[in-house]
């Protein structure tokens, strides 16, 4: 009898711990947005990236007619959304944003280098850097071949 009570208690405790564990888990999993440093971190990364781009002879020409303040705001929004932050990207599609540019892979490589440098300058951990890059790289095709996506959109 006593044993049965003990077993019940142990089982009960186990169940409580298990449920508590389940309940705790989601709150322990920080979003990538948090790991990038939230609004402050993402803003700093974008500002660092703008500094990098300003000194990048390969890419600076593409920004000649860009409204840098708008670009900054939209990019912060976009990185926030991509990293599961509380934002909604309100800018143009990647296809539309890059439709007037003739880009090749060296431009894309160069931008990735600048983004990595921007994250390094903000002491972003490598794991979070890799996560963000992994979420941005699928945009490669739309950035490099915007016409493909624009003509699709025009049909609708």
């Amino acid at each position: 009898m006593r044993n049965r009570v003990l077993i019940n208690r142990v089982a009960g405790c186990g169940l409580v711990l298990f449920l508590a564990g389940c309940a705790l888990k989601p709150s322990q999993q920080a979003t990538l947005y948090d790991r990038l440093g939230g609004n402050e971190g993402v803003t700093a990364i974008v500002d660092n990236l703008l500094y990098e781009l300003a000194g990048n002879e390969k890419l600076i020409g593409f920004f000649e007619e860009t409204d840098i303040n708008r670009f900054r705001t939209k990019l912060i929004e976009q990185l926030c959304e991509v990293s599961d932050g509380p934002c909604r990207y309100s800018g143009d599609s990647m296809a539309k944003a890059h439709s007037n540019m003739t880009l090749n892979r060296s431009h894309f490589d160069s931008l990735v280098n600048d983004l990595i440098a921007a994250m390094d300058a903000n002491d972003t951990p490598v794991a979070a850097q890799n996560d963000l890059l992994a979420r941005l790289v699928p945009m490669y095709d739309e950035v490099m071949h915007p016409q493909k996506y624009l003509s699709d959109a025009d049909q609708y």
């Binding site: 490598v126 794991a127 890799n130 996560d131 890059l133 992994a134 790289v137």
Partner: peptide, 9 residues
């Protein structure tokens, strides 16, 4: 593969 194994490439 980016962010593939223990969050490494």
């Amino acid at each position: 593969w980016l962010h593939a194994l223990a969050e490494r490439n």
